[in-house]
Amino acid sequence: MPSLPTPATWTDPLPAANPPAGMGVHHLPTGTYQTRAALAVRGGSLRDKRPFAASAVLVRHPKGDLLIDAGFGAGLSQHIAMLPWYMRSPHKAGRTASEQLDAVGYDRGRLIGVIPTHTHWDHTSGLDGFRRTPIWLNTAERQYASSAPDSRVFRHVSAGHEIRSYDFDSGPYLGFPACHDVHGDGSVVITPAPGHTAGSVIVFVTLPAGTRYAFVGDLTWQLDGIRNRVERPWLMRMFADHDPRSVRRDLLRMIALENLIQIVPAHDLDAYDGMPGMTPAEPPC
């Protein structure tokens, strides 16, 4: 299948960041569901069955920790039952993010918020384990989630939660028109990436050692989209994306950064390579 045009590689300096000592990221895998590659990326094979990851990522920071997405929750069976029949893929559930944090004695008082990259069920089911933790949403995604059919599970699990609004109140960031610097030190920066949903976002994280991550949510479902410069198949773009043209634009922005940042599509298990988990042998700082 034809690839997207090759964007010019990013050649400007990377944005300044001053991540503090003790900062880190942890991958919290909560399970997988099965999707054929032909439905994930253009040119994918029907014979290639992919285990789509459902994960959360804990970002530790001295000013307060954040969870990016929430993965599968304790009420997963109920949540899947709320989906249309054609979205109920075979799945394997693991320990929830909440259970993984509790297993290492994590102090919930450190957690200042959950930032969903968007409000689809497989990113928010696990919110049922974080009832006392605020959910951070920008205005566009909050409005989208209030009525969109594909945010029904989010509305269910977010009932009773504090919703904390944030704005994109700073200037351009790595080709994106605006951003929100969570801690004011450039270590956790959120940019708008509307397209998959009306208010979907990318969360950029920079660690003290200089490693940079871009948690891109469902901008692409698999790393193939970055490496091979391919979109979702046409039918899936029309079915799954709020604005396919915006998705293409931001996908090209990320492809331009491929060699500078570890890009993490939420559903590609390989994208989390090198990221530690949460185990009793590796307690949080």
Rank of each mutant, 00 (worst) to 15 (best):
residue 113 G to I: 00
residue 72 F to R: 04
residue 69 D to S: 14
residue 1 M to Y: 08
residue 34 Q to W: 10
residue 33 Y to K: 10
residue 67 L to S: 05
residue 14 L to D: 06
residue 223 L to N: 08
residue 265 P to N: 08
residue 275 M to L: 14
residue 53 A to W: 01
residue 230 V to Q: 05
residue 104 V to N: 03
residue 87 M to A: 15
residue 30 T to S: 09
residue 276 P to L: 05
residue 87 M to R: 15
residue 197 T to K: 02
residue 167 D to Y: 13
residue 252 L to Q: 13
residue 64 G to E: 04
residue 135 I to M: 03
residue 260 L to K: 15
residue 151 S to I: 00
residue 148 A to P: 06
residue 283 P to D: 11
residue 177 P to Y: 07
residue 83 L to V: 03
residue 254 M to Q: 08
residue 17 A to I: 04
residue 21 A to T: 13
residue 80 I to R: 06
residue 189 V to G: 02
residue 118 H to D: 12
residue 206 T to L: 02
residue 220 T to Y: 06
residue 81 A to Q: 14
residue 194 P to Q: 09
residue 237 R to K: 12
residue 210 G to V: 15
residue 250 D to H: 14
residue 82 M to V: 01
residue 242 H to C: 04
residue 27 H to M: 04
residue 88 R to M: 09
residue 188 V to C: 09
residue 232 R to P: 01
residue 155 R to A: 00
residue 53 A to K: 02
residue 84 P to I: 06
residue 227 R to A: 07
residue 146 S to N: 07
residue 225 G to P: 05
residue 95 R to G: 05
residue 190 I to S: 05
residue 226 I to V: 11
residue 99 E to L: 01
residue 169 D to Y: 11
residue 55 S to F: 00
residue 226 I to A: 02
residue 176 F to W: 09
residue 35 T to Q: 15
residue 201 V to L: 12
residue 28 L to N: 05
residue 150 D to N: 15
residue 242 H to N: 13
residue 75 G to Q: 01
residue 211 T to K: 15
residue 173 Y to S: 02
residue 163 I to A: 11
residue 173 Y to L: 05
residue 255 I to L: 10
residue 135 I to R: 01
residue 137 L to T: 01
residue 187 S to K: 05
residue 210 G to W: 15
residue 116 P to M: 08
residue 175 G to A: 11
residue 237 R to G: 08
residue 49 K to A: 14
residue 157 V to I: 03
residue 243 D to R: 07
residue 66 L to E: 07
residue 150 D to K: 14
residue 15 P to S: 08
residue 113 G to M: 01
residue 190 I to Y: 05
residue 43 G to W: 06
residue 143 Q to Y: 11
residue 279 T to H: 07
residue 259 N to I: 10
residue 282 E to A: 09
residue 170 S to Y: 13
residue 255 I to C: 07
residue 63 K to H: 09
residue 234 W to G: 10
residue 173 Y to Q: 05
residue 108 R to P: 09
residue 92 K to E: 15
residue 175 G to Y: 15
residue 169 D to V: 11
residue 87 M to G: 08
residue 56 A to C: 13
residue 21 A to Q: 15
residue 258 E to A: 13
residue 249 R to Q: 11
residue 236 M to C: 11
residue 101 L to W: 02
residue 9 T to K: 14
residue 19 P to A: 12
residue 182 V to D: 11
residue 139 T to P: 06
residue 208 P to F: 02
residue 228 N to V: 05
residue 90 P to D: 12
residue 207 L to C: 12
residue 44 G to P: 06
residue 70 A to G: 03
residue 195 G to M: 02
residue 183 H to Q: 12
residue 187 S to V: 12
residue 268 D to N: 09
residue 211 T to W: 11
residue 235 L to W: 12
residue 260 L to G: 08
residue 245 R to A: 15
residue 39 L to N: 14
residue 106 Y to T: 04
residue 94 G to I: 03
residue 117 T to C: 13
residue 111 L to F: 13
residue 171 G to A: 15
residue 231 E to V: 10
residue 27 H to S: 04
residue 134 P to C: 08
residue 225 G to I: 00
residue 92 K to D: 15
residue 64 G to D: 04
residue 32 T to A: 10
residue 236 M to W: 07
residue 220 T to D: 07
residue 129 G to Q: 09
residue 6 T to V: 13
residue 238 M to T: 12
residue 254 M to S: 05
residue 270 D to C: 05
residue 244 P to G: 08
residue 34 Q to M: 14
residue 159 A to E: 10
residue 255 I to M: 06
